[in-house]
Design a protein around this nucleic acid. Structure first.
Length: 420
RNA sequence: GGAGGAGUGGCUGAGUGGUUGAAAGCGCCUGUCUUGAAAACAGGUAGGGCCGCAAGGCUCUCAGAGGUUCGAAUCCUCUCUCCUCCGCCA
């Protein structure tokens, strides 16, 4: 959510932001509503003050003369306030509605343009050279009995995956290892969150109201399956004021992620690259506005650590304005190379939301110096998404004989085995 | 799912229709005293909105949403959360 004050004081900044994202919105309509809102408030408060004084005066009269009847003009005043208040609420609902569909303002450092304008910040490692033609994860995993899409389709439908045997175990090892690195080395607190969340939570992080169609919803209880652990974990501190000394607060959480991927059929349709349910280890941070961009780089580094230790080749991409997600002010994607499918796969998105989510969720901190409450900045990033990481690990570390060389960091989690 | 009980400021906790945004205590901040600290004493200490250059003024908020009333923390309705007992269950 953008600050209503920003709309009022600097609508041009928002116009500029929408242009960068190639979107449009009726800002003039919103501004008119905002003006109407203030006029209503002024009128209502004036009437309320008069009513209060009248009520107090009547209370004194009644103390002396218990039989006294309330003056008719007080009733009239009370009715007028009720009418005006109704108009005000309607006005505020419209403003709220309009505002909730406006995306965050991109940070000044974000390149302007479409995907082509995205900047490759750095490339780490290089594409592995193999003396044989690498197979893709689908061929590899199916041959070894680690992946079974037919069974997944039988029990659920297309675009669901199923891991079996060593495949399932490898993913479990990856999850455990990632959580260990983030908790023991990077200082994150592990959270095991609920996987069903309510509307308020989905609104706070920005999935609602605009993207309801992309979410799995349980109608009977009006709950949503989490599209990412970002939702429950960011909402941990909804409606709270954190002491500045506690910041930054850093959490890591494993969760399955559920996405309808409505309208995205046709692209990335093969194998584990795009599925309705995948596992992910998420990193979430709450910081002060002054330190959020330093925290952003730091969090990105934590995600990169995972890729480096898995021996994967990857690049860091700073997304251009049109590719930026709704709530993000700035985002780095980590794209890891998958030699089998011959493409870079997005295995992590690390975003700084500044105060956008905090304003929707009302997450504040008490500033140590002034003792005033202000909105925190929230950040999150995948550390990492398991399905695509599995793809990259399988395809990068495959051997000519079809076996998989296990990255050293995972061996303690797999009985010390060197190969699967 | 059934039956009861409860939700008040950072915390504990008063308050059942008329200056109660809210007693008291704790905590915290400032000052006096002290070499320093503690103690004691004095004062201060919620958040949002509107107007205003500011000082400040006004207004809203006692789990949430509606309602009754000239006037609601207090009365009524619904919802949510927590606790106790029963049922069910991994």
């Amino acid at each position: 959510m953008l600050d209503l004050k920003l709309l009022r004081d600097n609508p041009e900044a928002i116009r500029e932001s929408l242009k960068k994202r190639n979107l449009s919105a009726d800002l003039d309509g919103l501004l008119a509503l905002e003006k109407a809102r203030r006029e209503l408030i002024a009128a209502i408060e004036q009437d309320r003050q008069t009513l209060k004084q009248g009520s107090d005066a009547f209370a004194k009269t009644k103390a002396k003369t218990p039989s006294a009847a309330p003056p008719a003009e007080l009733k009239a005043l009370s009715d007028r306030i009720a009418t005006q208040d109704e108009a005000l609420r309607s006005c505020e609902r419209k403003i709220e509605q309009g505002l909730s569909y406006l995306p965050n303002v991109p940070h000044a450092s974000v390149p302007v343009g479409d995907a082509a304008a995205s900047q490759i910040v750095r490339t780490v490692g290089e594409r592995p050279s193999m003396r044989f033609t690498p197979k893709d994860h689908l061929a590899l995993g199916t041959a070894r009995g680690w992946l079974n899409f037919e069974q997944a389709a039988k029990v659920s439908g297309s675009h669901f995956s199923l891991l079996a045997g060593a495949g399932a175990r490898l993913e479990r090892a990856l999850i455990t290892w990632m959580l260990d690195v983030h908790t023991k080395e990077h200082g994150y607190t592990e959270i095991a969150p609920p996987y069903l969340v309510n509307r308020a939570a989905m609104f706070s992080t920005g999935q609602l109201p605009k993207f309801e169609e992309d979410m799995y919803r349980l109608k009977a209880d009006d709950l949503f399956l989490v599209p990412t652990a970002e939702v429950p974990v960011t909402n941990l501190h909804r409606e709270e004021i954190l002491e500045e000394a506690r910041l930054p607060v850093r959490y890591t959480a494993y969760s399955p992620c559920f996405r309808r991927e409505a309208g995205s059929y046709g692209k990335d349709t093969r194998g584990l690259v795009r599925v309705h349910q995948f596992d992910k280890v998420e990193l979430v941070a709450f910081t002060t506005p002054e330190s959020s961009y330093a925290e952003h780089e730091r969090l990105l580094g934590h995600a990169e650590t995972i890729l480096q230790r898995l021996g994967l080749h990857y690049r860091v991409v700073c997304l251009a304005s049109r590719d930026l997600s709704f709530a993000a002010a700035k985002c780095y994607d980590l794209e890891a190379w998958a030699p089998g499918v011959q493409q870079y796969l997005e295995v992590s998105s690390c975003s700084n939301f500044e105060a956008f989510q905090a304003r929707r969720a009302n997450i504040r901190y008490r500033q140590a110096a002034s003792q005033k409450a202000a909105f925190v900045h929230t950040l999150n990033g995948s550390g990492l998404a398991l399905a695509r990481t599995m793809v990259c690990v399988l395809e990068t570390h495959q051997q000519a004989d079809g076996r998989l060389r296990i990255p050293e960091v995972l061996r303690p989690y797999l009985d010390g085995a060197e190969c699967l």
